[in-house]
Design a protein around this nucleic acid. Structure first.
Lengths: 208, 208
DNA sequence: AGTCAGACTAAGCAAGCGCTTAGTTACCGA
DNA sequence: TCGGTAACTAAGCGCTTGCTTAGTCTGACT
């Protein structure tokens, strides 16, 4: 059966949006594969066919498989950082800021769970230079959360023993979403976000 | 410089206890490598040289690399389950049981962090049959924690919206230890355990 | 019409992979 | 002293890997 108006017939089924640019399709296919099987179990042929290209087509746009990982990891960390910053900006009080962080960041981990998995679990496979670059972004994320806790403690809204330990536990709840989440799960992103926001407020003694 | 009384001179430095049996040295070397680089980035040559064997030596004791992973994953899950069960048995009240679970299981994730990483992050690379087997053990772990929460709610000790969601968040705090922990960190296993136990009691509204 | 740059592919290379084969060694019971 | 068994290695097989090379095609600019 001939297919009237479809793009250049490829032998394998692409996994990414056929209307996106080639670079974006490669990034989507790489994110999909890295999240699903991990960086080392993913072959450049997987990525190429996921983007509807021949194996060599990858190297027109990216110099190596690691460069694809770095591109995804860096932009993923940057978008996570932007999200955290605006969650803080948009909240008048530390309690609002923390609820925003936990709610929105949890939703992000659900809705972008493939990118989130790459961000949280694949950065070890970067070259030392690239790894150092994303580690700096990760530290910044940690300290943004800790600062919210410290401000909440300072104005008496939160009761917290150690803000570093508590920030780590809060981020654990969020980050771990990328581990257990599956698209087959019934809970919606908004439900997961509001659950985690409520749990967080309890954890810092800011019941309302 | 000749080395007087060392065992059969191998070209590469073994990473595991030289006094252990060969099977145990292989399991140790595999756990070390899988935790450090992941299943797919680990080669059977890495494991063999880590155990002080030639590449072929692995196959005297294990039929495949995946069999090594399954062996580690299954025994790791079983020891985690035993730990959870005794944490519950040893606690007179749900609050004690929860504190035991969070404290001891966190310590386990620190002290056995290589096995814990394999348990928490590498089970996807098992064959479908082996994967199903460890998934059953994982579900059992989840429901043990949820049952403690339900009993605490029933006798009025805990205040919890949804015991499944809360159990997941509690386990997230523990499981995530295997992600962020590094032997270079200053906090002791006992400190991490008691911090997480205290946070958990707060999360379920059982302040004491 | 001619040219030239960029996107892409067919073919394939060198290296590394999981695992096997054939053989050696050490040890144990008869 | 011997035959048998289990642990182990040297060598290497067939395959897959990340990536390259040489070339084709398309479209924009002159």
């Amino acid at each position: 059966m001939p297919q009237p108006t479809t793009s250049p017939s490829s032998t394998s089924a692409p996994t990414s949006d056929p209307d996106a640019t080639t670079v974006d399709r490669l990034l989507q296919a790489a994110a999909h594969a890295f999240a699903d099987k991990g960086f080392h179990a993913t072959t450049t042929r997987d990525i190429a066919s996921g983007a509807g290209l021949s194996p060599a087509g990858v190297y027109v746009h990216f110099g190596s498989k690691e460069e694809l990982l770095f591109n995804l990891s860096r932009s993923g960390h940057e978008s996570a950082l932007r999200l955290l910053r605006s969650a803080i900006t948009d909240g008048p009080t530390p309690a609002d800021q923390l609820a925003n962080i936990m709610g929105r960041f949890s939703e992000w981990h659900v809705e972008q769970y493939q990118v989130a998995r790459v961000v949280q679990y694949e950065h070890h496979h970067l070259t030392p230079e690239h790894h150092a670059e994303v580690l700096a972004l990760r530290k910044e994320m940690d300290s943004l959360v800790r600062d919210v806790l410290d401000r909440g403690v300072a104005d008496g809204a939160f009761t917290v023993d150690d803000s570093a330990d508590t920030a780590l536990a809060l981020l654990s709840i969020v980050v771990d979403v990328a581990r257990w989440y599956s698209p087959t799960i019934r809970r919606t992103p908004a439900e997961i976000g509001s659950t985690n926001a409520a749990l967080a407020l309890r954890l810092v003694g800011a019941e309302r």
